[in-house]
Design a protein around this nucleic acid. Sequence first.
DNA 1: TTCCTTGCAAACAGTTTGCAGTCAT
DNA 2: ATGACTGCAAACTGTTTGCAAGGAA
Lengths: 143, 143
Amino acid sequence: MKSAEDMVALFRQQGLKITPQRRAIFETLAEGAVHPSAEEVYRRVQEGLPDISRMTVYNTLRELVALGELVEVEDVSSSAMRYDTETGNHHHLFCLGCHALVDVDQSFEALELPQAAAAGYRIVRHQVTFYGYCPTCQKSNPR
Amino acid sequence: MKSAEDMVALFRQQGLKITPQRRAIFETLAEGAVHPSAEEVYRRVQEGLPDISRMTVYNTLRELVALGELVEVEDVSSSAMRYDTETGNHHHLFCLGCHALVDVDQSFEALELPQAAAAGYRIVRHQVTFYGYCPTCQKSNPR
DNA sequence: TTCCTTGCAAACAGTTTGCAGTCAT
DNA sequence: ATGACTGCAAACTGTTTGCAAGGAA
């Protein structure tokens, strides 16, 4: 994630307006959790801006996704979308116990699908997700 | 996916009852699409059993997941869960254009996370998803 | 008979849409 | 001044829950 100021500049450059609400959302994203849900962003922004609407958060997140500054990530078994502030190519480590989602910077460049298996698809990217149990959940749920 | 008869046997063995609705769902899954959503299963079963309730489909799919005969898969950008009848280890090819989801039997055994990157997680499995455009969508959306 | 299953209706979560008033530029 | 933005309410989608009537064993 770029800094809040970068986001402000980007929005201006696109002819989009800078409101106190948007500024607060930028700041929350720049400082906050790595994979927040829309609801989490809303709650955090609300701490400093109690009257903000959930709507505005959704709108602004959507703009950021459209501008390529945020990437939507599926949250396995929770039905809520999460937003990834790291837009570069990276992978994920997901805890089956507590649903924590961690970035893995490792890049699996060598990972390629043989022509025969690609079924004529033009592949643009790939994403590896490792499923497991984080240290905390290993203790409370040993096996 | 095992055959419908196998599912019947498995349900009986678990003390679960075999109703016409459940039998129809088993048959639909055994013959049908590889990654249907609950709604798709519902619509297909409805063709032969017009009065079935969406509820019963959800219930039965949940039972099958609990018994390990079906695996839930996230549908990127659609918020609906899909059900994978192939429970073995395999990967996915997703079309960003039409949202088709195809199985890749290729196994990436060599794919391992270095100790240092695993952050203390105990990894139980990994899933690779390739994103791209299927042959049809390459034509209608060339780039 | 007994208990599980069905399916209706209602609740639910996350998200989107319509729109009047407000505000950044 | 003007057009974009905010935020309320309501709609919507996918799914779950409570419960009375029905059906498998």
